[in-house]
Design a protein around this nucleic acid. Structure first.
Lengths: 258, 258
DNA sequence: GGATGGCCTTCCGATCAGTGGAAAGTCCAC
DNA sequence: GTGGACTTTCCACTGATCGGAAGGCCATCC
């Protein structure tokens, strides 16, 4: 474990100790995992607690604090987008009763910022805040297809992790898929992450008409008519784009669609 | 503005510059608002960007980064709670089509961690991540009523901000309200924040049977039968408690049924 | 064109905050 | 009582941090 020289780096290392697998830790644990001296850890952690980045419970264990929420919701993927998208996600959920997801792009990863799920909906691997490579997720493909050329180039050149036998892993396949997404205006991502699920995604445009997010719906592989989902997802994506002030969604350009 | 002496403090000061009113800032702005030298700001901000706490857009402006999401969702109010509560919030929304909110307590404040709202629902002041004093919000009262005695004492001794003519502001009134909440098992918070709205809230218990969160529904003052909302909110709260493993919410366990 | 002002970036020496070893304190289990 | 795991406090040394200063970039103004 490389110990960063700067204090800031040490703080980040400490915060990085927390994960889904280890949502809480005691002082020694933090010290060990971060590779810092106990006394140093103690002081830094105390400062983090004082500010609210961490909380300390009755057992002396540390958790991520609620103050970080206040910051996180200020991120571009959150501010405005979530608020405005929510009602449309609601609509989509109400019609389909399946998992509905909202994601933004961070480099070559799709970050899920909202998700609506029902009791009986199919279980998916993603949670809010989690990330998936753009090449392997419906939302990722929807966003990548309309990303700046340099990002697309980078994605084509980067190794693509394989999740299932159907995962796109070659530049050629990805290139073709992206072209198809641009042509159709939506993505059907078939068993790219898990063999039993399928997702339909569509891009969301912001006020400057660039694609800033994507919405998707995840359903079980069998028993759901994909054809009926596509219009619903596209409608929601369009509604959200309009709510964000996207020019192309305000007027109604009929691009070859009936 | 007092300049903190520690590096950690300076980092927090920098992050604290961002707010709902100022979701992005350039370097000089950060330097000015944080009261730090330009060169210092430059170095610290660069480190924050490197780690992902901040992002820098094409115009050279800084935003809160998406990495903070990954941390924020690990907070106790998020991890597990949101995931498990969502379906029940959905149910509540679907039945009522009003604003549904989920909150946790942080000291004497209620922090909203999830909210579902419809196109036509009444507008409320709260957003995800925002805070309200416990004495003035339905969710706050629901949580405070079952909080440790010391926290209740503290709340009774602290000054209570007045939002409207109906806001609880005296220890006596608060004490009585809390007793009522404990007796009834729910809260009707009538115009305590805004005169035109009313909320019904109920406490949610965790695996250790303590109250860890609260769910509420916010409706316009007029035209909605409160009587019909109470059972719905209580049912949802109970369902979430059960999903969290709260002993008191697990009804007569049927054992042996394979 | 040259001047001006705003903003960002880099450099560098003095200084002072940060580090970590060590020791003392706390708590629990055996 | 003893041992062990964890936390808290102390302190002297040191090297990371700070901020002034200088330079670069890019507008806008005269």
């Amino acid at each position: 474990m490389t110990t960063p020289k700067s204090v800031a780096g040490r703080l980040f290392t400490l915060l990085g100790v927390f994960s889904e697998q280890r949502p809480s830790a005691n002082l020694s644990e933090l010290s060990r995992c971060a590779g810092l001296a106990l006394s140093t850890t103690h002081r830094l952690v105390s400062e983090l607690v004082e500010w609210g980045a961490l909380d300390r419970d009755a057992d002396g264990r540390y958790h991520v604090g609620l103050r970080l929420w206040e910051l996180a919701v200020l991120s571009p993927g959150s501010l405005g987008l979530r608020e405005r998208a929510m009602p449309f996600l609601e609509d989509l959920y109400e019609v389909t009763h399946q998992n509905v997801q909202l994601a933004v792009r961070d480099g070559l990863e799709a970050v899920y910022v909202e998700r609506i799920s029902a009791h009986n909906a199919v279980n998916v691997v993603t949670r809010i805040g989690s990330r998936l490579p753009v090449h392997a997720s419906g939302v990722g493909l929807a966003m990548l297809a309309h990303a700046p050329a340099e990002d697309q180039e980078l994605a084509l050149r980067s190794p693509m992790r394989r999740f299932t036998s159907k995962t796109i892993t070659t530049p050629a396949a990805l290139r073709e898929k992206l072209a198809q997404v641009r042509r159709d205006g939506y993505v059907v991502s078939d068993a790219q992450i898990e063999l039993i699920t399928l997702s339909v995604a569509a891009p969301i445009r912001g006020a400057d008409d660039t694609v800033v997010a994507a919405v998707s719906i995840v359903v079980p592989q069998d028993g759901v008519a994909v054809g009926t989902l596509v219009p619903a997802v596209r409608t929601a994506a369009r509604g959200i784009s309009r709510a964000l002030g996207a020019p192309s969604a305000v007027r109604s350009p009929r691009r070859g669609a009936p």
